[in-house]
Design a protein around this nucleic acid. Sequence first.
DNA 1: TCATCCCTTTACTTTTAAGTAAGTGCATTA
DNA 2: TAATGCACTTACTTAAAAGTAAAGGGATGA
Lengths: 110, 110
Amino acid sequence: MIHQRECPVETLIHVLGGKWKPMILWLLIESSKRFNDLEKLIPDVSQKMLSQHLRDLEREGIVDRTVYPTVPPKVEYSLSEYGKTLIPVAEVMCAWGENHNKRKYEEPAS
Amino acid sequence: MIHQRECPVETLIHVLGGKWKPMILWLLIESSKRFNDLEKLIPDVSQKMLSQHLRDLEREGIVDRTVYPTVPPKVEYSLSEYGKTLIPVAEVMCAWGENHNKRKYEEPAS
DNA sequence: TCATCCCTTTACTTTTAAGTAAGTGCATTA
DNA sequence: TAATGCACTTACTTAAAAGTAAAGGGATGA
């Protein structure tokens, strides 16, 4: 499982690597959401960054983008079937991250 | 396990987030290594970046730094006990990343 | 007629990360 | 005397990521 010269950990980190992508993924794991919903749920994200990161995730096949041709337009973002393969990974990462945050909080002077 | 407002996935990505940290972790999972070993094993890393990322990982408690007061100096970097908690996480991330790379290779025009 | 809503895109600026090159210290070897 | 090896650090430059502000398009409601 472990080779010397390649490090696929980088791949995952690259896919989820932007400043906002983890949060977007997290919210879409919960349920599909519209652009505006995400904008409201992610404090301080700019429309540009949200749009850009959603397009990145779409390009990787992780997120599906469904456009309903209504007026005003409605666009729904959801995890693709492939994107759902990230859920267990995200959960493991989440668990470690939560523990790490707790650890930092408990012993800030180490 | 899933909360609305926090996303600990970000924590992990932040800890492993630099350009070289995943590779460093990967190599240290395999075995402890010296500065020069890492430099040779990671193509194109500069001493500055290697040093900086090692210090980051040390600060997070993931990597132990052992100095042997010999001349020339010998410094060994190894995974700390805490750092070893990252191994299963890295393996899950690695597995997903490998699959993702394969997928990309198989259908580059999706 | 004018503003409104939603989902963007574009042009420009600022911030952050990474790269480059050189230098440090000290003991051993040539 | 000078060069070598190891493990860095510092100062400076460049590249990448993110932030800001504004505009667009097209139907609907006031």
